[in-house]
Simulated assay, not measured.
Amino acid sequence: MWKSMATIEADNANGSRRDGPRQETSPTSDLAIVRRLEAAGFRAWPAASIQYDGSWQVRLTAGHPSKRLNSVNPLDPSDRRDIAQRVERAAHRFESYDRPLVFRQSPLAPPELDAYLDEAGWDRFDETIVMMAPIAALDIDTGMDHLPVRDVGRYVDASIRVHGREPALKAGLTEVLSSIRPPTGLFVIEDPESGPVATALCIHDNDLAGLYELATRADRRRMGHGRDAVSAGLRWARHRGALHGWLQVESANEAAVQLYLGLGFREVYRYVYRRPPIGSEAA
């Protein structure tokens, strides 16, 4: 049965790594930390529609194509009942939004669901590393100070340009940013002659500082602008009382991974997206 819920609460269950290629937390990682970061991530990047099928959070957003905003997110490793029927229900829901069916598999996903998707031939793509560190231990006190911009429209225009996105996404991105409830710092690193060269979004959520939308313009990479944006966001959050910084980065983005490792971030867990094979009924 579908039901709406407003929040996700962490508990104290522990988890371990599964064998095989599935993305999992390390044996010493605590699923309570994973749950806390997952919940903070959902608050920081709010979907327009959120429904639950058991503990599977179904997130859909007509105005923006982001996978995090349009995916099924299983949130309890023990919730393994009626998998085939629930996948089918999710497929119908995504079809009604004209969105491709995508599952986001974190360490909170039940192993039986992964096995079911494996048997059905679902692809894995965009493996992502979640990293975290105490802000006091991070190397963020070098470089210029940058204050967050107050104009959401200015930030959105800069983000679209820096990411090389379609201008048609402006309305959807503006709606998402306007829906974020925790305090938000919008950072734009600009060149006086060529305009915005890097952007970052920092969300201050209790003692956490989450970094999102990190990007450097293609022609200005490897020049320190990305580091400046990250440092500016974390200094802003530290001033507001945040104690821990965290972020998500695709494992294939080796330059970004090395940047964050160099700053002092360390991996906490990974997640991966899954989609039906082309031509299947669920695709």
Rank of each mutant, 00 (worst) to 15 (best):
M144A: 15
N12M: 10
D207P: 09
L117M: 09
A256T: 04
R270Y: 08
G20M: 02
I140D: 07
L261I: 03
R18H: 08
D76K: 13
P148G: 12
L243K: 14
W122Y: 02
G185H: 07
V34Q: 05
V130Y: 03
S4W: 00
T142F: 11
E250K: 13
C202E: 08
H239M: 15
A242G: 07
D82Y: 03
S29H: 03
A168C: 11
A120G: 00
L169W: 09
N253A: 13
A232Y: 02
I33G: 01
E190A: 15
A171I: 04
E95P: 01
L211D: 04
S71T: 10
E95G: 07
A48P: 07
G63R: 14
E24I: 02
K67E: 10
V249P: 03
L60P: 00
Q51M: 12
E38Y: 01
L75I: 12
M131E: 11
I160V: 14
E88I: 02
W122L: 00
D205V: 00
A256S: 14
S71F: 06
E127C: 09
Q258S: 13
L108H: 05
L101F: 02
A209V: 05
E127H: 05
R124G: 00
P21L: 09
L261K: 05
V176F: 08
R104C: 12
V257W: 04
G195H: 15
R86H: 04
A133R: 01
A44K: 01
A198W: 12
G262S: 10
G41R: 00
Q57E: 15
Y212L: 13
A242R: 01
S159V: 01
L101T: 05
L214G: 14
S179C: 03
I189R: 11
V257R: 12
L138W: 03
K67V: 02
W246D: 01
S55K: 11
S66W: 04
E112F: 02
D191H: 15
Q258N: 11
Y269V: 07
D118S: 00
H92Y: 06
S16N: 12
I180D: 04
L247I: 13
R266S: 10
A256V: 01
S251K: 13
S194K: 13
D123H: 06
V268Q: 10
R181V: 15
A158G: 10
R99N: 08
P183D: 14
E112M: 04
R36F: 04
V188T: 15
E166G: 12
A237G: 08
L108E: 03
K67A: 10
S16Y: 09
L261S: 01
Y97F: 15
R165L: 15
